[in-house]
Measured scan of single mutants.
Amino acid sequence: TTLHFDLDGKKLQYTGVSEEIARLVEELKRRGVDLKEIVRILEELLK
């Protein structure tokens, strides 16, 4: 799965993300978590 974000005018793309992580990101968005925080979490998970 590939995730795309537009953060402060920067286009971020994460490829090869598992379905689980993609679902987690969608859930965080639904809960109103700040996009910067979501990206920070995502980068930690993908290390």
Rank of each mutant, 00 (worst) to 15 (best):
residue 1 T to Q: 14
residue 1 T to P: 06
residue 1 T to W: 09
residue 1 T to V: 15
residue 2 T to P: 03
residue 3 L to Q: 02
residue 3 L to A: 01
residue 3 L to P: 01
residue 3 L to M: 07
residue 3 L to G: 02
residue 4 H to Q: 12
residue 4 H to M: 09
residue 4 H to E: 15
residue 4 H to F: 11
residue 5 F to H: 01
residue 5 F to E: 01
residue 5 F to K: 00
residue 5 F to T: 01
residue 6 D to S: 03
residue 6 D to V: 08
residue 6 D to F: 09
residue 6 D to R: 01
residue 6 D to T: 06
residue 7 L to E: 04
residue 7 L to R: 00
residue 8 D to E: 10
residue 8 D to T: 01
residue 9 G to C: 02
residue 9 G to R: 00
residue 10 K to P: 03
residue 10 K to L: 13
residue 10 K to N: 11
residue 11 K to G: 07
residue 11 K to L: 08
residue 11 K to F: 09
residue 12 L to Q: 05
residue 12 L to W: 06
residue 12 L to N: 02
residue 12 L to F: 11
residue 12 L to E: 04
residue 12 L to P: 01
residue 12 L to C: 06
residue 13 Q to M: 14
residue 13 Q to F: 13
residue 13 Q to E: 15
residue 13 Q to L: 13
residue 14 Y to C: 01
residue 14 Y to N: 00
residue 15 T to W: 07
residue 16 G to Y: 07
residue 17 V to W: 01
residue 17 V to A: 03
residue 17 V to N: 01
residue 18 S to G: 07
residue 18 S to F: 02
residue 18 S to Q: 06
residue 18 S to R: 05
residue 18 S to L: 03
residue 18 S to E: 05
residue 19 E to T: 11
residue 20 E to G: 08
residue 20 E to C: 06
residue 20 E to L: 04
residue 20 E to S: 13
residue 21 I to A: 09
residue 21 I to R: 02
residue 21 I to L: 06
residue 22 A to Y: 13
residue 22 A to W: 08
residue 22 A to R: 10
residue 23 R to G: 15
residue 24 L to C: 07
residue 24 L to T: 15
residue 24 L to G: 08
residue 26 E to S: 08
residue 26 E to P: 01
residue 27 E to L: 08
residue 27 E to H: 07
residue 27 E to S: 08
residue 28 L to D: 01
residue 28 L to E: 05
residue 30 R to N: 13
residue 30 R to L: 14
residue 30 R to Y: 15
residue 30 R to V: 15
residue 30 R to T: 14
residue 31 R to L: 14
residue 31 R to P: 02
residue 31 R to Y: 07
residue 31 R to H: 10
residue 32 G to Y: 05
residue 32 G to W: 03
residue 33 V to R: 06
residue 34 D to E: 13
residue 34 D to Q: 11
residue 36 K to A: 11
residue 38 I to M: 04
residue 38 I to S: 01
residue 38 I to R: 02
residue 39 V to I: 14
residue 40 R to G: 14
residue 40 R to F: 14
residue 40 R to Q: 13
residue 40 R to T: 14
residue 40 R to N: 12
residue 40 R to V: 14
residue 40 R to W: 09
residue 41 I to K: 06
residue 41 I to P: 00
residue 42 L to K: 00
residue 42 L to P: 00
residue 42 L to H: 00
residue 42 L to E: 00
residue 43 E to S: 06
residue 44 E to A: 10
residue 44 E to P: 03
residue 44 E to Q: 09
residue 45 L to R: 07
residue 45 L to A: 15
residue 45 L to N: 11
residue 46 L to K: 03
residue 46 L to D: 03
residue 46 L to V: 06
residue 46 L to Y: 05
residue 47 K to I: 10
residue 47 K to R: 11
